[in-house]
Design a binder for these strands. Structure first.
Lengths: 178, 178
DNA sequence: ACTAAGCGGAAGATCGTCGTCCAGTTAGGA
DNA sequence: TCCTAACTGGACGACGATCTTCCGCTTAGT
């Protein structure tokens, strides 16, 4: 692949993430192309259809999240601190908006996204372990699980508001054992 | 107006509320007509365009909310209890979904909806008073205001999930002074 | 039983997005 | 420098979803 083509490909994936986070999974291809500074034709040459683009995007995205979780795990300030900082990290930068957009992806699409599915499953497992540890130590209420955390993240970040991060903190205060 | 026409009119407004709550403010008119058990033609005779229908719907809706707030105020179990029960009432039955849908209404539309605007303004004022009282008594954290409560309601109810009410309760625990 | 009011839904208009195609441009090797 | 294969942008026709109108049939109510 020619160097300029490579550069454009990367720009397109990045633009897709931003646009999908803002406008949802059905954002027009032209918006993505514009944001990347290329024409629609260029997008379609690199990615035969929007599915391919979404898959590329999702893969990059899930790896970032998984890395953040690893960092949180390694911080060694306790399970609840790890959960908390991971949630706040996810809430930041509208990452969750992308997650929300991916969440209502048609089921059949996931079958072309093996890597994404695998990495995500692994991540959920690790988050569950962290939550269980925090609960065992009595640092976190027992009626909220890892899946609830992910749902809540989706809810908050998919609905952008100026005080989103503040709300997330209030929510975390409600989740922490008082 | 003939009795059957009146009946249909009411049914249409009710159907519109349900459909808009589920599918957003841009839900197809045909869906609303179907849900009301009438043809699209009937909808358009009663309401010249979707704006008129939305206005009728919004008016009915805001009165219900205002009534609920009145009930909460009258319960006399304290300001925080009133705020809490009002928020939970709103969260119930997907009322917020409708609020969310109304929230991203084009600005110019509100100018044809005087009644709605007036009643809503009055309601917000009363909620603010309740919040101030709860905060003064130290029952509620000071960094969350009436507008935040409304935003949070929108956020939660516009994004329907099986555990929505539970999340709202957790959130309220975070908002209450611990 | 008569008629004004009401009814449903087919049909045509409109709109936004998709994905293709091709004439023109450019990277980078010889 | 020159050459060409690779790449580029965006106009364009197709398409599906939704809007709104219109009209022949039905019905409430006198």
């Amino acid at each position: 692949m020619r160097a300029d083509a490579r550069r454009n490909r990367d720009r397109i994936v990045e633009a897709a993430r931003a646009v999908v986070a803002e406008r949802g999974i059905e954002a027009p291809m032209e918006l993505i192309a514009r944001r990347a500074g290329v024409g629609v034709g260029t997008v379609y040459r690199r990615f035969p259809d929007r599915h391919a683009l979404i898959a590329a995007m999702a893969e990059q995205y899930i790896h970032e999240i998984a890395d953040a979780l690893t960092k949180a795990e390694e911080s060694e300030r306790g399970a609840w601190a790890a959960v908390r900082s991971f949630v706040l990290w996810c809430g930041d930068q509208g990452r969750g908006a992308l997650a929300a957009a991916l969440a209502d992806l048609p089921q059949e699409l996931f079958e072309e996204m093996r890597e994404f599915v695998t990495v995500r499953a692994n991540m959920v497992e690790r988050l569950e372990a962290l939550v269980a540890a925090a609960q065992e130590r009595g640092e976190m209420r027992a009626d909220v699980g890892a899946d609830d955390l992910m749902t809540l993240l989706n809810i908050f970040t998919c609905h952008p508001t100026p005080r989103g991060e503040h709300y997330l903190r209030v929510m975390l205060d409600g989740i922490a054992t008082g």
